[in-house]
Simulated scan of single mutants.
Amino acid sequence: MKRDYYEILGVSKSSSADEIKKAYRKVAMQYHPDRNPGDKEAEEKFKEAAEAYEVLSDSDKKAKYDRYGHAAFGPGTGGGFSGGANMEDIFSQFGDIFGDDIFGSFFGGGGRRGGGGGRSRGVRGSNLRVKLKLNYEEIAKGVTKSIKVKKYVGCNTCGGSGAKDKGSVQTCSTCGGSGQVRKVTSTFLGQMQTVTTCPTCNGEGTTVTAKCTSCKGEGRVYGEETVTIDIPAGVQEGMQLNVTGRGNAGERGGMPGDLIVLIEEEAHKELQRDGLNVAYELHISFPDAAFGTQVEVPTIDGRAKIKIPAGTQSGKIFRLKGKGFPEVNGYAKGDQLIHVNVWTPQNVTAEEKEMLEKLSNSPNFKPQPAKGEKSFFDKVKEVFS
């Protein structure tokens, strides 16, 4: 079972962004692989801290985590590192937290990994955010949607390199193609090697001497792409799904950004959602309540018949087990709650009035609530407990 993100970093929900950042730096420094060579447990704790920070440092993801916990970032929902995240991914994404020097050798060891160590292609593309409206049936069953997204796409003319032709790309003379510059300094502890991103090529290892005429050297152009998104069953209004690598294309072959999909719920004509449950207001006539009847009610996936027993009181709540929404990445499923309202006529004829006056004197028409009858508030508590 995953540990709580706040517990991992040693912070509280009320901690500020700066406090969270400082806490992450402290934990990451403690379990940094260069300080714990060959220690698999330390490496896992380093990854764990990176995952916690990735969520808690993002206001949207933090809000989702505070509300849904780890379920908000299960398979298909985005957020957090995937179980297969490697050290290079983490160093690349969080290098700005530590600065370039931290990934150099501690007291004379090997070079920097990932982000600024080793050659990196281009500039990473930015993330995109889109809204996607779903109806109740799509939410209940899950759905695959194909949407058109206007964004930066890779340039077909130069293949994303940004160069006019192959001969227009040269190895960077400053770093020799490595994308990084190494510097060795002497300290009282001995020699210390630091590695920084090459200032000439920005870590790409190459420079472009003649730009592509189609993309003006960016390696990308503004266009449109059809993106297919798998929506898991049970998503809710305001949830965000992360589609990795489907955001804006990066410059000169850089990694693309992500596509962030914000879920919106399309209002249902007859049903209302309350968490995993679905509520329906059923209105029946006084004779039907008195004699009992069978009625048809709408559900998420069609219509269902239910029996109304004779003597049903207004306010009675019937439950259709399992007719609600499924839990995202879980096994729970909500119910459909049917709230009965006995309809009172607002306009009656003289003849109807005469009949009702006769009935009003009958003992059976005098209110006689049972002693064990639950109050309205008790019923509500029972339904939502």
Rank of each mutant, 00 (worst) to 15 (best):
M1R: 13
R3I: 13
D4C: 11
G10R: 02
V11T: 06
A17W: 11
E19G: 15
A23F: 04
Q30A: 09
Y31K: 03
D39E: 11
K40N: 13
E43P: 03
E43A: 15
K64P: 00
G69C: 03
A71T: 13
G74V: 05
P75F: 01
G79R: 01
S82A: 14
M87I: 15
E88N: 11
F98D: 01
S105A: 14
G114T: 00
G114D: 07
R129Q: 12
Y136S: 08
I139S: 04
T144Q: 08
K145A: 03
K145N: 06
I147K: 01
K151Q: 04
V153T: 06
V153Q: 01
C155D: 05
T157P: 02
K164G: 05
G177K: 04
G177H: 05
S178K: 10
G179L: 09
S186K: 14
T187L: 09
F188S: 15
G190W: 10
T194R: 09
T194M: 12
T197L: 09
G203D: 03
T207Y: 06
V208C: 10
A210I: 09
K211L: 14
G223T: 00
T226Y: 08
A233M: 05
E237Y: 00
G238V: 03
M239F: 07
M239G: 00
G245W: 04
G247P: 05
G247R: 01
N248I: 05
E251I: 03
G253R: 02
M255K: 11
G257Y: 04
D258L: 04
V261C: 00
H268R: 05
H268G: 03
H268C: 14
E270Q: 14
R273T: 14
L276W: 02
P287T: 04
A290D: 10
T293Y: 03
V297W: 07
A304Q: 14
P309E: 07
G311H: 02
T312R: 07
K316I: 07
R319I: 13
G330V: 02
G330N: 08
Y331E: 10
K333G: 01
K333R: 10
I338W: 00
V340K: 07
V342Q: 08
T344G: 07
T349C: 02
N361K: 14
S362D: 15
P363W: 07
G372K: 15
F376K: 13
K379L: 08
E382F: 02
V383R: 14
V383E: 12
